[in-house]
Design a protein around this nucleic acid. Structure first.
Lengths: 339, 339
DNA sequence: ATGAAAGCGCTAACAT
DNA sequence: ATGTTAGCGCTTTCAT
């Protein structure tokens, strides 16, 4: 027997000790049948005894499947993304898959490099929170299953995507403020905001129109993208307040943005929700911790993650999704900030 | 040429098209030398043309190294862990490694299953935020480099670990409150808190002793572990306040716990920091967002992550770490909650 | 400078 | 029910 602990035990070793062929060991390990109960017992016992772990590289090489999925996302630091990542890992591990995670920092180059690496590592499929057209074309040139999350692909109709209806949620939050009596509602956003947040602002405008409230471009507050969101948005909000525009409601395009908005309002001693009501998106655990606790849009990351995984796993097994674009419904979670 | 897009291109294909042997292709791809400049050009051109990506499973099988690291942590949902994970991924990707992430939910069984899977996938090493002795023994029976993060191994002196000095930070926060004039300081903790938080409470007690403040077990407030921390700690804090004990400072053992503490104090209309000062640990971005912004202990996750990775990569390349236990210094970040 | 061939650990097709 | 063997794509040793 091999006593060298640096040498990994292979089915060859197991076969020798158990007194069978490697084919039989393989069959037992994979429950393929074609062996006696007695053989099975013996092989299993030897495997246990030696703590045998099958070499997945060899298996992957042989079978061209790795039982590993790649996930490319902008940054796991963002609690919204990390919650998606969490539920993805949960779902995949329950289905026998492992997860390779890559942060792209929203850079198209990193995304493509990550994608290359993942393909090289023989992942069976890729989940992607992206939005860059460059990446998209690169992906299309590869014959590997990909599912987009929270981003619609630009041209490629045959990449499935799981997302929220951002225009609708933009309408939802704005209408909620209107129903609470707000008539002077600002929308606070980054100056170079991404796809989702652009759509949210469109929803905001649609809601105003629907309720015959005249949109005023001054109320589309843009903060600078070159510093942390919570500071930039505080500055932008503060500057807006200094101008003396009437204000009774704010839609903050993200939670960190909302933090800045709250800070500016607090600084001006404007009571929330009495004078100004504030609502935001994503409903991470921290919405609850702010003062006052924030009304927010729950985007159901668990369901998004599970849906994305099941579409991807189906795709891997040759099943085309029923529809390529799937909208996961969002819902309003109301808290004190809009009471 | 192979036109079947489902067939992955191999160096065999490249060799054929470039009119060289597969050995030469391999040499070019790995910069091993032993080919003419002209050959190199031609091979590279063909690789580019066909978008060739090397099959890492084959390479791993052949070389017994995958350039992949496994990370086992309790839950990526926790912003403290996700920030460690982020910096780990950043460091590793810069060094040519990929990252397989596994959530263990603090279950020893899951940890061991994850570890098995990672070993099977031929990871070159494992980073682990754990603390379970069962897992530790299992790890020791394997000859694969492992580095612990934020947890000291129980008996195994030869698993390197990178952690903070929790007793010291426990002292630090308590002494800060004392220096701000607090004399009736509570420590709020879970009833079954883990290793780190136990040490923090020991530091708290040591600081009191050092300053001749008599410790009172009533001030070691325990919240129930069966509901979300922020609610459980709010209840526990509220109950404590109802008892009428004098109170001017609170050490909350985690950020979510601090959120509950703030909520209870707010509910009782006790002004922070005027009447009661509050301090906590981990200093995630959300400390800043609470009302008032929380003083907290910065544990320097970036440095922890980088140190852990460099020790692990060194370990993989046969270099023993200088010391097996490395303490990453923490620092106090002061904000309004203790002004 | 280049090629032929062995072998990493595994599965599956084909024997028996 | 079990064994023999080819071959997945790659690196590397040994020829030339």
């Amino acid at each position: 027997m091999v006593s060298d602990s640096t040498h990994n035990i292979s089915i060859k070793d197991i076969a020798r000790v158990a007194g069978v062929s490697i084919a039989t060991v393989s069959r037992v390990l994979n429950n393929k049948g074609g062996y006696s109960a007695e053989t099975k017992m013996r092989v299993k016992a030897v495997c246990d005894q030696y703590g045998f772990i099958s070499n997945m590289s060899a298996k992957t090489l042989r079978e061209s499947r790795s039982n590993t999925i790649g996930l490319i996302l902008p940054s796991i630091l963002n609690p919204y993304y990390s919650s998606i990542a969490y539920y993805i890992e949960l779902f995949l591990s329950e289905h026998g898959y492992s997860l390779l995670i890559c942060n792209s920092d929203n850079s198209a180059e990193k995304e493509m490099a990550n994608f290359r690496t993942l393909v090289g590592k023989q992942v069976d499929g890729v989940l992607m929170i992206s939005g860059r057209n460059e990446t998209e074309e690169y992906i299309m040139s590869r014959s590997i299953p990909v599912v987009f999350i929270d981003r619609k692909p630009g041209k490629s109709v045959d990449i499935p995507c799981i997302c929220s209806d951002n225009i609708y949620t933009g309408i939802l939050v704005t209408e909620h403020l209107i129903s609470r009596g707000c008539r002077h509602i600002a929308f606070v956003n980054g100056s170079h905001s991404g796809f989702n947040r652009k759509e949210r602002s469109r929803g905001y405008l649609q809601a105003l129109e629907r309720h015959n409230i005249k949109a005023d471009m001054n109320y589309l507050i843009k903060y600078k993208d070159n510093e942390p969101v919570q500071f930039a948005s505080e500055v932008a909000m503060y500057d807006f307040l200094q101008e003396g525009f009437p204000l009774d409601g704010v839609v903050a395009s993200s939670e960190l943005c909302a933090a800045g908005v709250l800070a500016a309002l607090n600084r001006m001693n404007i009571p929330i929700p009495e004078k100004v009501k504030v609502i935001t998106f994503d409903n991470t655990p921290y919405s609850l911790l702010m003062n006052p606790p924030l009304s927010s849009v729950e985007r159901n990351t668990k369901i998004m993650a599970e849906k994305a995984c099941s579409v991807l796993l189906g795709f891997i097994n040759g099943k085309q999704p029923d529809q390529y674009i799937q909208i996961i419904p969002s819902s309003l979670v109301l808290r004190r900030s809009t009471e």
